[in-house]
Design a protein around this nucleic acid. Structure first.
Length: 593
RNA sequence: UGGCUUAUAGUUUAAUGGAAAAAUGCUGCGCUUCGAACGCAGUGAUGAAAGUUCGAGUCUUUCUAAGCCAACCA
């Protein structure tokens, strides 16, 4: 059982015996003791003053001495500062913990809980390559999936590909007009970049046409609507929906090119899906819910035959669910997909990793799903995240002002290569090993950079300043791990020696143990919150604590065999937590770097 | 016009209503030692105002600033 929880139970016991207070009537806050004070864990007394009708110093000493007497096995001393009751924990509690867990390579992973959860992420459009914002989405999705897996869930990773619509028609049209049958092969371009190039080309032409129309005396509004190339694209979308073979074939060909490009990028960043949904298959879904909603009076029809839901009771507005021409809208497809997903996988929860610009849309989706009584509608959760922006503002593919995903990954790997070469610690590596190492470090830096911030905050990415490799970064943690592995290569734990009980833990040893012992609760909390940033912070604190320990205390030259063995166990478990913890962020760890 | 989000050292971020924590930067120090992508010391912050509370960066209200959403777009 977790130490913090054990202290809480002890406190409950004390309050029950001394004040006849029941656990459900009081809240007890237990924190790690701040480093300025003596002690390991702190009970905060303020919210206990009322129920016990005591003053802080009286309550503190009563509680402190009672716990010292009745839980002598757990506490070795206490001190009271204002309303903070600080306890020092018996050393043997930590040494027992370490002895029990140091060789558990599965530490941090909970047993299966029999529940299934779906995580939908990435969701690209097929008219352009992935950019830095997509990377944030992918890393969040991957990490949320890994967190839930560690928490014991069966995780289904899915992706909805936005493979139809006006945007892809724009790329297709530009290619028909300007492409001269060029292909990714003939141009030597990656497929997604190739198609993206024509998307930008379309917009160049479009802007010129609009400018010409305005020069001819039309208003801005009509010009933007009437530009010939836009009308052609709209016509093409209609031809696609009519199933015109020529258009369908071109559409398939261009999408294939894009998928080939995506596959390369996904493979590099370690992204994969158990199930991919295509919007071209799902865009007609959900019609049956319009009928069902009408017959249950959840929806209503206006005079022009459009169908609406009034969500003002949920604090939302009216929402259209079917246009007056009888075609369905985005939200209706989404409802259909909610039902399809459930029918196939029966997930208890469904996590959508989608940018915060769709907060309102996702609220509406959940509200409608709830009203229509779709199964597990309450399990819909929008994992919302802020956009990645440039100092100049939002990234726009059609303007060409994006940080391309492949480019930034390349750049990070290049920086990793330069830094590694400068240090010259892995000169014996083969070129394959080096390539793998650079990728591990470069991607580690990038993933950590995007995950360490609270998901809902915007990230302003400045391409002028390269992503750091020092301090609160992925490479710092990888470096700490490589250091530990280096120690472990040079020292074997002598299991034959039955070493004596440790009498006194040194402060640096104990601080490390406290973090290791508390780590599983950080993970379970992060899994509940879908919050990889909490893992980043805890891993960094642990790595930092280990480095302090490392600089001060030698493993190899420990004073006694027992101490050496103990420190080796400490290093071993630290390595396990760092590695398994980084795995929750889907960041790999190098044995050497 | 409504709704949502954000605002903490020069910069980037932390903080279940309970002791404002780090990173980076800057200043100084530590490699003949298990790896200096490291460590140690110093420096410096809660947008404004009111309220609730024993206690507010955190909750409520108002204001300011930035962003997003709401329109038969996907």
């Amino acid at each position: 059982m977790q130490l913090q929880h054990q202290i809480k139970l002890a406190a409950f016991d004390a309050l029950q015996k001394m004040y006849q207070l029941q656990p459900e009537d009081i809240s007890v806050t237990i924190n790690l003791t701040k480093s300025d004070f003596e002690g390991d864990y702190t009970i905060i007394l303020f919210n206990l003053l009322k129920p016990t009708k005591e003053k802080p110093d009286i309550l503190g000493h009563k509680l402190g001495s009672w716990l010292m007497e009745n839980y002598a096995n757990l506490f070795s001393s206490y001190n009271l500062i204002k309303g903070f009751l600080n306890f020092t924990i018996q050393d043997h509690w930590f040494t027992d913990f370490l002895a029990k867990n140091f060789d558990d390579t599965n530490y941090l992973n909970e047993p299966r809980n029999g529940k299934r959860v779906m995580v939908e992420y990435s969701s690209p459009n097929t008219n352009k390559p992935l950019h830095l914002g997509h990377l944030r989405n992918n890393f969040l999705g991957l990490s949320a999936a890994a967190l839930l897996d560690a928490a014991g869930y069966d995780v289904v990773k899915t992706c909805i590909v936005n493979d139809r619509g006006i945007h892809i028609c724009k790329s297709m049209l530009a290619w028909m007009l300007m492409g001269n049958n060029e292909t990714p092969e003939s141009s030597g371009m990656k497929g997604d970049h190739f198609v993206g190039k024509y998307y930008v080309l379309f917009n160049d032409i479009y802007k010129k046409e609009v400018a010409q129309l305005i020069a001819d005396g039309h208003t801005k509004e009509t010009s933007e609507k009437e530009a010939p190339i836009l009308k052609a694209a709209t016509q093409m979308l209609q031809d696609w929906e009519a199933g015109q073979p020529q258009i369908i074939n071109l559409w398939k060909k261009m999408n294939e090119w894009v998928y080939e490009g995506f596959d390369i990028t996904y493979k590099r960043i370690g992204s994969s899906f158990d199930k991919i949904y295509y919007e071209s298959n799902t865009y007609l879904l959900g019609k049956e819910f319009v009928e069902a909603g009408l017959s249950q009076n959840i929806f209503y029809k206006k005079e022009d035959n459009s169908i609406w839901a009034d969500l003002s009771a949920e604090g939302l507005d009216e929402k259209i669910v079917q246009r007056r021409d009888g075609t369905s809208v985005y939200i209706t497809q989404d409802l259909g997909l909610v039902a399809d997903k459930y029918n196939e996988y029966h997930c208890d929860k469904s996590i959508y990793v989608i940018a915060d610009e769709q907060n309102y849309h996702m609220k509406v989706l959940k509200a409608l799903a709830t009203r229509l009584q779709l199964p597990k509608a309450d399990g819909i959760y929008h994992l919302s995240y802020g956009m990645v922006e440039l100092p100049s503002g939002k990234m726009k593919s059609r303007e060409g002002t994006v940080v391309d995903a492949d480019d930034i990954v390349d750049e990070m790997i290049q920086i990793a290569a330069t830094k590694t070469a400068a240090l010259g610690k892995v000169n014996d590596f083969s070129s394959d090993e080096l390539e793998k190492l650079y990728e591990t470090i470069g991607l580690g830096a990038l993933k950590f950079f995007l995950l360490r911030v609270d998901p809902k905050k915007r990230i302003i990415f400045n391409p002028e300043e390269s992503i750091d490799f020092h301090g609160y970064t992925g490479p710092f943690i990888q470096y700490t791990y490589a250091r530990i592995k280096s120690i472990l290569r040079k020292n074997d734990i002598e299991t034959s020696i039955d070493f004596p009980q440790m009498n006194t833990l040194l402060p640096l040893e104990k601080k490390l143990l406290i973090l290791l012992e508390a780590f599983p609760s950080v993970v379970s909390e992060a899994a509940v919150q879908y919050d990889p940033a909490a893992i980043c912070m805890a891993l960094f604190n642990l790595a930092q604590q280990f480095n302090s320990f490392y600089n001060e205390l030698s493993v190899l030259h420990a004073e006694t065999i027992a101490s050496k063995n103990f420190r080796l166990q400490l290093a071993t478990l630290t390595a396990v937590v760092l590695k398994n913890g980084m795995q929750l962020l889907k960041i790999d760890m190098p044995e050497r770097m």
